[in-house]
């Protein structure tokens, strides 16, 4: 295989990575943007989404496609419900104080992870993709499912964009994000908005996870990498900025795959972690922040 096709393959793989990452990171970004909450348990919502997808797909009789579609619906709803309850039971009572919230979400991380370990076990388990068709390209065959993942992510981003910009719900969220006090004064039910945003953020991570389990197996420790990557993306894209997040997710998803071809994965992680840390220090509004209002 020549360099051109090789780069093409790497780009495709990178885009698949980016698709899942963008959904997960937008979830994290939404929560941070609207609620100013740093959710350390976000990766566990991702993991929970994958594990629930496995449960649903395994217990659904008939064609794998039916199981997959069921998982795509049930998993985000279930994870969203868990997040909603967590917000109601814990975060609201902490009044979203930054320190207390971050400590509580660290606690939540352990609780979710260990609960899954006790029920689901320590094994990694695969989910069947809904279809197996392989697209023959002149240089290599490529899984049509992976292309589906990219398409699905694009569609979902379109939906998110529509909800944020064109619906009453999006307006409420943006108003709350812009100025909490004023939103309260205008009678926006800020607490309710918060709980829903927290649930939606977690649900987005779960969707990302459902899309990835046919490619990558479900495992109780799989939440850490998406968490760190999402943080990376959200910081580079600018804390709380959705457009920046999308842009950064594509950048990171693409470069992550390409970087790990040239460097050892550990070194790549060290370099990218330090890079992100420096972005946080020197460009706190993200790499692309230019016209700040």
């Amino acid at each position: 295989m020549g360099f051109g096709p090789f780069l093409f393959l790497a780009t495709l793989e990178g885009l698949v990575q980016a698709s899942v990452l963008v959904l997960t990171a937008v979830g994290l970004s939404l929560v941070f943007g609207v609620m100013r909450v740093v959710n350390v348990a976000h990766g566990e919502f991702f993991m929970l989404g994958a594990v629930i997808a496995w449960f649903v797909a395994t217990n659904m009789p008939g064609d794998p496609a039916i199981g997959f579609i069921a998982a795509l619906i049930i998993s985000p709803l279930a994870v969203g419900a868990v997040a909603y309850v967590a917000d109601r039971l814990i975060l609201t009572r902490l009044n979203y104080n930054p320190e207390a919230t971050i400590v509580a979400t660290i606690g939540l991380l352990y609780v979710i992870q260990q609960s899954v370990l006790m029920t689901y076990g320590a094994d990694a388990r695969p989910v069947d993709p809904p279809f197996y068709y392989t697209i023959r390209l002149p240089w290599f065959g490529y899984s049509s499912y992976k292309l589906f993942v990219i398409a699905a992510a694009c569609v979902l981003l379109g939906v998110i964009w529509f909800v944020l910009k064109r619906t009453k719900w999006g307006l409420l969220m943006r108003a709350t994000q812009f100025d909490r006090e004023t939103a309260l004064a205008f009678g926006i039910p800020v607490r309710k908005v918060y709980s829903f945003v927290f649930a939606i953020g977690a649900g987005l991570a779960a969707i990302g996870a459902v899309l990835i389990v046919p490619i990558q197996q479900a495992h109780y420790l799989m939440g850490l990498d998406p968490l760190l990557l999402s943080f990376t993306v959200v910081i580079i894209g600018g804390l709380g900025s959705i457009q920046g997040t999308i842009f950064a997710a594509i950048l990171i998803g693409l470069s992550d795959g390409i970087l790990s071809v040239f460097f050892s994965p550990t070194l790549a992680k060290i370099v990218s972690t330090l890079f992100v840390a420096m972005v946080l220090v020197f460009k706190p509004n993200g790499l692309f922040a230019k016209a700040k209002r």
């Binding site: 400590v103 352990y110 609780v111 992870q113 609960s115």
Partner: peptide
Amino acid sequence: SAYFLFLGLILIALTLWFP
């Protein structure tokens, strides 16, 4: 073997009721 579960629960409980 799941003492991390308790670690998590204790963290949450402390922030909620015993800051």
